[in-house]
Design a protein around this nucleic acid. Sequence first.
RNA 1: GUGAUUGUAGCUCAGUUGGUUAGAGCGUCGGAUUGUGGUUCCGAAGGUCGCGGGUUCGAGCCCCGUCUUUCACCCCA
Length: 456
Amino acid sequence: MQKPTLPKGTRDFGPEQMRKRLFIFDTIRQTFQRFGFQPLETPSMENLSTLMGKYGDEGDQLLFKILNSGDFAGSLTEADLQAGSKKLTPKISEKGLRYDLTVPFARYVVMNRNNLPMPFKRYQMQPVWRADRPQRGRYREFYQCDADVVGTDSLLCEAEIILMIHEVMRNLGMQHFTLKINNRKILAGIAEAIGMPGQEGPLSVAIDKLDKIGKDKVLDELRERGFSEEAITKLEPLFGFDNASTADTLTMLASWLDASTTAQQGVAELQETLQLATMAGLENAQIDIDPTLARGLSYYTGAIFEVKANGVSIGSISGGGRYDNLTGAFGMPGLSGVGISFGVDRIYDVMDELNLFPAGTGQGTQVLIVPFDADARGVALPLVTQLRAVAIPAEVYPDLAKVKKMLDYANAKQIPYVVLIGSEEVQTGQLTVKNMVTGEQQKIAQADVASFVRQR
RNA sequence: GUGAUUGUAGCUCAGUUGGUUAGAGCGUCGGAUUGUGGUUCCGAAGGUCGCGGGUUCGAGCCCCGUCUUUCACCCCA
């Protein structure tokens, strides 16, 4: 018999991992709901026509495609096979697994445009798939938690995203993070300012790597991408933002890029966004205005966000931004939206590495009831029902096994309390409650077990 | 997609220049204890050495392919 294996880049999540993951999901969901976002789920698979072309060429390549059902090769000709995989794909596959949650959301909005209250705020927590090569913090199947608003271009939405990120991080117990913010309009303005208007794409790709490969290599890459020495010289101010405060950064950007109306607009947007966030009561902001922050997804047009955990070498744990025309691709132009996406799997990796999960995260069974014989069940079963009725997770050991075995079971499941019920307990009505951490045990009347366990 | 890297018991790892029957610790299961665990002692189970092919009298060890792991690039949560 062959040993079973998992597909590359996928994982099982055992009970212990799931408890921690649910802690993350619950924390994020609470915040999303508190900010007025409504839940949405969409299918795992979408038509390829919905997905293709939304994430750039690279993204198209990373889409998992689903082979057509039935005789998918039936009508293929020799010429089709010769034409290469790119031409062949649409003939044998018309569906794919979703790559993110934003594009399916845009599709949903367009299909339901007449029934949605605008602005429409939705959150969505589902897996996405990318045919990437797995690495640390990078999986082929992973969960995203998205919150998006469409139907308004108010910067209040950006401000609320900043508030939500701070709230989520703090509720998770991740105190040490950095929220990097930039604006695509500033990137466009930089391209203008150095005499390469419209070239913010290649520019972004290079300068985004600044903190990773350093200034010199960024400049080398720009030269390779056809940027002149003159342009590179004009870019010099970009490298002077390192330790500037938020306010100083904005001032410096405004004066450096004063010739570009686009850039001025970007700076003004950031300014107003921060102002609104402050007005809403944001304290101890962990914001870093970073003009080198780019982000790959091609549909962003305004603010862009990225969250990194400090002191861990895992990529960004959250990212997002404003997109002005995502629904345009589905025949509904002019609908602006802005959103944020939390990467649960990376958040998990960071919290696990830094030991940030609170002790007893998602504690399972609280009380194990151990009847020694069939008579004892007459006491055990009413008791377990009684505990469950007051929301104390409890279970009865199902077999009449040796006590040692049943206590081992409690240890294995880290159950803090065991109620032992033998003939003596049945007769007196005083049950033996054992604290599995301290080893202490005492007699307690059945009616008082719940409140005893509750106290701690 | 490009270039490296890894794989031996459930887990972490030994395994000599290629040489009989592949080992240890931890864990699991049973017992010492017919109403008391996390300590101790005794015992047992568990491996076609990732998979397929090749070289050799002989392969866990050498060669090729493949899958998997990890890492860099690309890109990204």
